[in-house]
Design a protein around this nucleic acid. Structure first.
Length: 682
DNA sequence: ATGATAACAGTTTTT
DNA sequence: CTGTTATCAT
């Protein structure tokens, strides 16, 4: 352990040795953050002698939790109970399993995902836009507003409607013993807030708390953390204000910037030595982020002198851009660079298409990171639905999902009727079908369907039996009984789905083998809360969004689409400082070389749009800070342009506004001054 | 009950 | 230009 400490620099060691009282570790990109906090955890356990059961370390992703666990455990000598190191949501889940009875709810609740949530919301009110309703409800829960409070707060009629849907949604969840992702934290907070004894007990239990990626926490998480350390103040948080890129989903950069205000006598340690990138990359990243005002303020200090200058690549359009990049990557690979050390990043996923075409043309294998996650795929959710029903046949929600999958001819109408009838007789749907006679069923659904339903229930019973006997062969039984795999095999484009199903079966068997003591419920909860990010090494380069790249590093990095409107991305709710942080996060992924590209025009949403080079080039010191004449050429007097709100108009004048351009536009007699980035040329 | 066409929207994403 | 969902015939 002492040897491990010596591997750290002075500030990192200082962070490890700070034991009691609030500590903020501001860890710049590539500054050895994970190494520092995993060493700190190991130090707490091994040197200070804190019992592992007294520590709690929270992360945002399973991947981070896994990595930290492995690294911390490799450092400590003694074996015993491993420390609790998990995601916020997993912690919430565990906590609720033990304590939700205090809210008069049963501990066998089912966690629903955001798709389930939307389906429920649409059923409650199909006329409102479900994505908006879903995100508003999420906002309410994360601001700890109950439906009544949300209603009071709502001024617009539309929002009053949403608050009412919220109330019905909550009632539905309680009625069906469901819990959504936000509840895992919100209900945990509520329990701690309403039960002082429980709060004290919990805080006493976890005397040393660490939080990873603190810049991504939201209001609710902050309040939860405060509850968790109500009986002590041994709270160590790690993060980087300059890498806060989740503001749009509620993360509040204020939490990290004002940490010292929230926790008295907080110590702040800045890790500023960067061990990742060559000097030119750091100076570009530093120069860019200095333009932000809301930040604690720190600089990345160089430990790797030398290195090639950051390259700016220009192209006429997206196909030239991808062609040029493909060419450069080919050169790198030919010179012996491993493809997996190359990555291309973009601000929005829509830009991946042209890139993929270019890479395919150049025969460069690539791996697209992100996209639809494994457990979000329809076929996998079907399987999960079956397993849930095997655990609890009264789970109406899951039963409804699988009752017609694969297709058995049970349609929406039949399901609705069955549910209604079940409610009328105070039974679950399963119970109702089981107890009803064929004659009764035939009154509701067609003759053929009543037979189908009876058979279906019988099969479910068999499945449940099998689940009680042996978990290992459960998936075989599942497939034998319901022919799920075969149903996808019969579909013309079902090959991928069959592959996914096989993978799921494999994962399930592995899980049972590795954890023979675990229950089916354990498996399902783990599946739902995991993102199944397969870490692959190999002969492919990586392409992904900037968000998806956080925490990763590559020898040779390309960032495309550095144009006004794409990076920075403008639109309602956009925040230039967050865009700048996105630039910063993307640049700091690079170890050896960094190439930034922009194009003069790009196809997007079926339109070709003229684009100006991103202001970030100037801010990063990569070209003249003042805008040159060539940049104006995107617009000239007399151009026809379109604005999102005002529609089509004609440019009558051009003027400067700081680093931006202002256009005088005549929208059919209505003259306005508008920033050039808010219009597009027709 | 299910398949075909029309209308529509269209950052970033984890749990 | 895409992919997704609502609606309409069959």
């Amino acid at each position: 352990m002492e040897n491990r400490l010596k591997e750290l620099n002075d500030t990192q060691q200082e962070a490890v040795r700070h034991i009691d009282g609030p500590l903020l570790i501001l860890a710049g990109a590539g500054s050895g953050k994970t190494k520092t906090i995993t060493t700190r955890l190991a130090y707490l356990l091994d040197v200070v002698g804190v019992p592992s059961s007294s520590t709690l370390t929270l992360t945002f992703t399973n991947k981070a939790a896994k990595e930290m666990r492995e690294r911390a455990l490799s450092m400590i000598s003694k074996d015993g109970h491993p420390p609790l190191l998990c995601t916020f949501h997993k912690f919430g889940l565990l906590f609720l399993k033990f304590n939700i009875h205090l809210l008069n709810r049963k501990s066998n609740f089912v966690v629903i995902d955001s798709d389930d949530k939307k389906r429920i919301l649409k059923r409650i009110n199909p006329d409102l836009p479900t994505p908006l309703v879903a995100s508003e409800i999420s906002r309410y829960k994360n601001s700890l507003l109950n439906p009544d409070e949300a209603l009071q707060q709502a001024e617009l009629r539309e929002y009053q409607k949403i608050a009412k849907v919220y109330a019905e949604y909550e009632a539905y969840l309680v009625e069906n013993n469901l819990v959504d992702f936000d509840d895992l934290l919100a209900l945990t907070y509520r329990l701690l807030d309403e039960n002082d004894d429980l709060c004290k007990l919990t805080s006493d239990r976890y005397r040393y708390i660490m939080i990873d990626e603190y810049q991504d926490t939201n209001e609710l998480q902050l309040r939860l953390i405060k509850k968790l350390c109500c009986s002590h103040s041994n709270i160590c948080v790690v993060g980087d204000d300059d890498q806060s890129i989740y503001g749009w989903r509620g993360a509040n950069i204020r939490n990290i910037v004002e940490f010292a205000k929230d926790f008295n006598d907080a110590k702040v340690i800045k890790l500023e030595y960067n061990y990742r990138s060559k000097a030119p990359i750091l100076s570009v990243a530093n120069a860019l982020i200095e333009h932000n005002r809301t930040r604690v303020g720190k600089k990345l200090l160089c430990t790797k002198e030398g290195g090639e200058a950051v390259v700016m690549l220009s192209g006429a359009d997206e196909s030239e851009e991808s062609q040029k990049i493909a060419f450069k990557i080919k050169e790198l690979i030919d010179s012996g660079v491993s493809p997996s050390e190359c990555a291309i990043l973009y601000r929005i996923n829509a830009l991946s298409r042209s890139l993929e075409e270019g890479l395919n043309r150049a025969n460069i294998p690539y791996r697209l990171v992100g996209g639809l996650r494994f457990y979000d795929r329809a076929e996998i959710k079907d399987l999960i639905g079956y397993l849930r029903v095997a655990i609890n046949p009264h789970d109406n929600y899951s039963l409804k999902r699988i009752i017609n999958r694969p297709k058995r001819g049970i349609g929406k109408m039949s399901i609705e009727k069955l549910e209604l009838e079940a409610i009328r007789s105070a039974k679950s749907i399963y119970e109702y079908i089981k107890s009803a006679s064929i004659g009764e069923l035939e009154l509701l659904v067609r003759k053929k369907n009543s037979q189908t339903l009876k058979k279906f229930i019988k099969q479910l019973d068999e499945l449940q039996d099998a689940s009680l006997r042996s978990l290992y062969s459960l998936v075989d039984k599942l497939d034998d009984l319901f022919g799920i795999r075969a149903s996808f095999e019969a579909m013309p484009d079902g090959a991928d789905r069959v592959q996914n199903i096989d993978e799921f079966y494999g994962l399930f068997r592995d899980f049972v083998k590795q954890r023979p003591e675990a229950t089916l419920d354990d498996f399902l909860n783990e599946a739902l809360l995991s993102s199944a990010q397969d870490e692959v090494e190999g002969q492919s380069i990586y392409i992904m969004s900037i968000h998806a790249s956080k925490g990763l590093e590559f020898d040779h990095l390309f960032v495309i689409g550095l144009e006004e409107g794409f990076l920075p991305l403008v639109g309602e709710g956009s925040d230039l400082e967050e865009e700048r942080r996105l630039g910063y996060v993307s640049f700091t992924r690079a170890k050896e070389t960094l190439t930034l590209s922009h194009v003069q025009s790009r196809y997007y949403k079926g339109r070709r749009t003229e684009l100006m080079k991103s202001r970030f080039f100037g801010e990063a010191g990569l070209c003249e800070a003042s805008l040159k004449v060539e940049k104006v050429t995107a617009f000239k007097k007399g151009d026809l342009v379109r604005h999102k709100i005002f529609g089509a108009g004609r440019v009558t004048g051009i003027s400067r506004a700081g680093r931006e351009f202002k256009l005088n536009i005549n929208f059919g007699g209505n003259r306005r001054e508008i920033l050039a980035s808010f219009v597009e040329r027709l």
